[in-house]
């Protein structure tokens, strides 16, 4: 929902704190997710993730969430799927050239990021979206990654 999404991006600290508290729990439960099997854990955790993030952020379940780097404004709501900042077509009133009724997702992201502790994460260049991951759970992926500290970083 647009109004909830705007609210979330304007109060990103709440979600940063909440996620930082949630992340270790998610990681500690990794043996549980593993025992459940990939398919079942995806079904359960993925559904919870989808419902909550859809409500809060208009999440598109890209499967490679970067909300923490984008001021809690979901960049997949950008009609050009920009993952690295606003395009050059932002209107003078700050709205989107493709959807003039919507404020630029990256304006929300920039303002949101400046309210967060990790405000400089927005400067990291994001790799292209892996379209295979669409619909899968970022939470489970993150839990798997965090519980294997020696893993190499990027999947691209």
């Amino acid at each position: 929902m647009y109004s909830v999404r705007l609210w979330a991006a304007r109060h990103p600290r709440i979600f940063e704190v909440a996620y930082n508290a949630f992340h270790p729990v998610l990681t500690r439960l990794q043996p549980v997710w593993k025992a459940m099997g990939e398919e079942r854990s995806e079904k359960v955790v993925g559904k919870v993730e989808q419902l909550s993030k859809e409500l809060l952020f208009d999440c598109k379940m890209c499967g490679q969430c970067i909300l923490s780097s984008t001021g809690m404004s979901c960049s997949m709501n950008c009609p050009k799927s920009m993952r690295n900042g606003p395009c050059g077509g932002v209107m003078q009133n700050g709205h989107c050239e493709v959807k003039p009724e919507m404020r630029c997702v990256w304006l929300e992201a920039w303002e949101g990021s400046q309210k967060m502790r990790q405000s400089d994460l927005i400067q990291v260049v994001q790799t292209p979206v892996d379209h295979r991951l669409k619909g899968s759970s970022s939470w489970l992926r993150e839990a798997r990654r965090a519980s294997q500290p020696q893993q190499e970083g990027r999947h691209e």
């Binding site: 009609p79 050009k80 799927s81 920009m82 993952r83 690295n84 900042g85 395009c87 050059g88 077509g89 050239e97 493709v98 260049v125 994001q126 790799t127 292209p128 979206v129 379209h131």
Partner: peptide, 27 residues
């Protein structure tokens, strides 16, 4: 990155945007 398809003479076209200008540079 490119203008959106709505700006041109083929607004029916599928916008691809698989990469963005930044990931295109890196590529």
């Amino acid at each position: 990155t490119g203008d959106g398809v709505q700006a041109g003479d083929h607004p029916q076209a599928k916008p691809v945007f698989d990469l963005d200008s930044m990931s295109l540079l890196e590529t």
